[in-house]
């Protein structure tokens, strides 16, 4: 049994009253524990939608996502929120940091939500920020950092709760090549150091060689997952 099993996932979006577009047309996929995989495909292939469904940020119309033996899509909304907090981490293309919180506070809130004391949470936030090379920027606001640094904060936030799986949606799309490579190295380092399963959506061919496996999608189905 694979660590992540995706079974016959279908997803449609409704436009107006009678029009709908099927984005995912019965996706099946297995990902092993500790694997670093890249989801690739052309625009509109459904890779980001699949990532969001696997990451419990969106609902499928049909199918199952089984993580470590637990059928995730059948969970209640509260259970899914709890699962996102405790076991899953996210890195988004446009970083998605809370602008009014310092970078430490952006991480700290996750620890507090996960029942840590403020001190424990702050200490863990500093640890994560040091891990991504931002130990000297702890009290800065996101707006005071460069794009590459903000993405590092986003990665630090994603590992705050020591997740089992990290989902990344085009994490290097808004970065220059130097920063992009640094982020990829960071992902690889996290994957090796913590044996963290990473599922990353990317459209950049250069990174295909740096992951364990490339899963290619086209028109809402997986066409290659070797």
């Amino acid at each position: 049994m694979a660590f992540i099993e995706v079974k016959n996932i279908r997803k449609s979006y409704q436009f107006g009253k009678n029009n709908s577009v099927e984005i995912l047309k019965g996706v099946n996929l297995d990902i092993e524990y500790g694997e670093f995989v890249a989801l690739v495909g052309s625009s509109g292939s459904g890779k980001s939608t699949l990532l969001y469904i696997m990451g419990l940020l969106d609902q499928a119309n049909e199918g199952k996502v089984i993580i470590h033996g637990h059928s995730m899509l059948e969970m209640t909304s509260t259970e899914q929120t709890n699962a996102r907090l405790k076991y899953l981490g996210y890195v988004f293309q446009d970083f998605n940091l809370i602008p009014e919180l310092t970078i430490t506070e952006n991480l700290e809130i996750i620890g507090i939500a996960d029942s840590m004391s403020v001190e424990e949470s702050r200490s863990r936030a500093h640890e994560c920020l040091r891990e991504v090379g931002l130990g000297d920027q702890l009290s800065k606001l996101p707006s005071e950092l460069s794009g590459g640094q903000q993405q590092r904060v986003s990665i630090a936030r994603s590992i705050m709760n020591k997740p089992l799986i990290l989902f990344a949606d085009e994490p290097t799309a808004n970065l220059d090549s130097k920063n992009s490579q640094e982020i990829m190295s960071l992902f690889r380092s996290l994957n090796k150091k913590f044996n963290m399963t990473i599922v990353m959506v990317t459209h950049e061919d250069d990174f295909k060689k740096q992951v364990d496996r490339v899963i290619e999608m086209k028109d809402g189905v997986v066409i290659d997952s070797q």
């Binding site: 909304s77 509260t78 929120t81 996102r84 907090l85 996210y90 998605n96 939500a113």
Partner: peptide
């Protein structure tokens, strides 16, 4: 609302 969705995405409960 974007900040709220970020909070929800990273696991902060709606109740909180």
């Amino acid at each position: 609302k974007k900040q709220l969705s970020i909070l929800k995405a990273v696991g902060i409960s709606e109740k909180t």
